[in-house]
Design a protein around this nucleic acid. Structure first.
Lengths: 98, 98
DNA sequence: TCATTATTTGGCAATATCGCCAAATAATGA
DNA sequence: TCATTATTTGGCGATATTGCCAAATAATGA
């Protein structure tokens, strides 16, 4: 059960950064290459790449090489629900039934 | 929209630690005082207290003093759905419809 | 008021995360 | 093969997180 907690934490940690959160949000709309994601979040390309490797390691995204480019995509549509869920928690009054 | 992302990240970060995750999971079953939570996660009382202040600051929990004790409780049942959601994401095959 | 119990706060060292730079790797086309 | 483009990796300083200790605060009952 420690393992279960650790696994959860790893996944949650992967989402606990502005750039990574935005990238996952973007990936929910379809696959993207690293350049596109860099345009989205800004900063150095290497930084973006490292963020992506964190997402990859957590199991949230998968990669596929096509030519010189690497295309990242969400492995699970759950992420969309995840954000809605977080949004519900943010809504302090909990109006939307949570 | 930057603000929206920042708010989400703060909430997610609050859950991105084993002790805090376990405490929230426990609080989903009802309010608990600090001692009880310390028994659950172990470690120094002051450490537990600081973790709780992180949860408090994020808006996930609320506190009420009764006598000498401080009782923490979840502000929103959403947290339960949240965990289910994370669990779904962990399930790589996404069988359960996510 | 004083001692006791429950909790928080301040401080500090250990560790982890982050972001940039430079260099390495990988595929492509000339 | 060489140059080019896309991406990753290694390294390093800056910053943030974590956990423990000691001290402070708060409520209670003697």
């Amino acid at each position: 059960m420690e393992e279960r907690v650790a696994r959860r934490v790893e996944m949650i940690k992967a989402l606990a950064h502005p750039s990574r959160l935005m990238m996952v949000d973007e990936l929910a709309r379809g696959e993207r290459c690293v350049q596109e994601l860099q345009t989205l979040v800004g900063g150095d390309m290497s930084t973006v790449s490292k963020h992506l490797s964190v997402l990859k390691k957590s199991g949230l995204v998968s990669v596929e090489r096509r030519g010189v480019q690497m295309f990242y995509s969400l492995r699970c549509a759950c992420a969309v629900d995840f954000f809605e869920c977080v949004e519900s928690m943010i809504d302090e009054d909990c109006r939307n039934g949570c």
